[in-house]
Design a protein around this nucleic acid. Sequence first.
DNA 1: TCATAACTCCGAGCGTCAATCGGAGTTCGA
DNA 2: TCGAACTCCGATTGACGCTCGGAGTTATGA
Lengths: 134, 134
Amino acid sequence: MTDMLRFPDLALGELERAVLETLWDVSPLNPGAVHERVAGGRRISVNTVSSALKRLCEKGLLEREKVSHAYVYRPIVTRADLQRQLIGAIANQFGEEGGSGFLAAFVDLAEERGVETLRRLEQMIAHRLDGDAD
Amino acid sequence: MTDMLRFPDLALGELERAVLETLWDVSPLNPGAVHERVAGGRRISVNTVSSALKRLCEKGLLEREKVSHAYVYRPIVTRADLQRQLIGAIANQFGEEGGSGFLAAFVDLAEERGVETLRRLEQMIAHRLDGDAD
DNA sequence: TCATAACTCCGAGCGTCAATCGGAGTTCGA
DNA sequence: TCGAACTCCGATTGACGCTCGGAGTTATGA
């Protein structure tokens, strides 16, 4: 899956997600430090965390830098970047034909969260439309 | 992925997606008919399509009705429903704390598609805000 | 009536991918 | 120099989707 609901390279596992969140919080960190923070509750070896770290690097979400003999890891995409990529991926899979349906689905969602959310959204948009005078 | 980027029951495979699209287009259809439409290009057995059909039922995206000795399948969620569910899933995984980040990411995306899209979005929202007088 | 075609259900094998860890080798620091 | 921490490699396990074959059931038509 792969197309509509699966995102090959954005697809993160639970551990990977926790690791990413941790590094968004504070970075750079070495495997040991990440392990400490992420292993809250779960009984996991440092190696397991290292695997996740490595996978995340391969996916282009983290970068690492050699410090003495080891590496420290840091995110190269922000939470916002990832959000954008994800939303974009979904949007694409629902046909480009304008994406009206997608927009509507989103507005529905915002509405569900309350009128307040809707208003906030409206403001954001107004702001953008002001910005680009076009 | 599983939490942030994976959606257990919304996660569809490529075949599943094609099948769903087909049925959104025309339904109900029996396995043979779905196979005909979906097997365009791919060399696939009817059984394979039946598997997908069955999985989709188990996921609650399709329902089937017995007609004589066999079943005909039809979607029970619309494309829009699925969009909403998907977007909702993503939104949830990015923290509920208001979801400002999520809103912003979305607006970014809309902006990328052009001011036209942004305006369309604005209108949709205005419309909702009118509707619910609250 | 009987053969054929189409279905259903079951189960099995394959590929991918995340999670998990052990072992071997390397290096920094006390 | 010894130990702790890391890196890299490889292996296993468990999901899950794709793919199909076989066995059993049923409707249809010659």
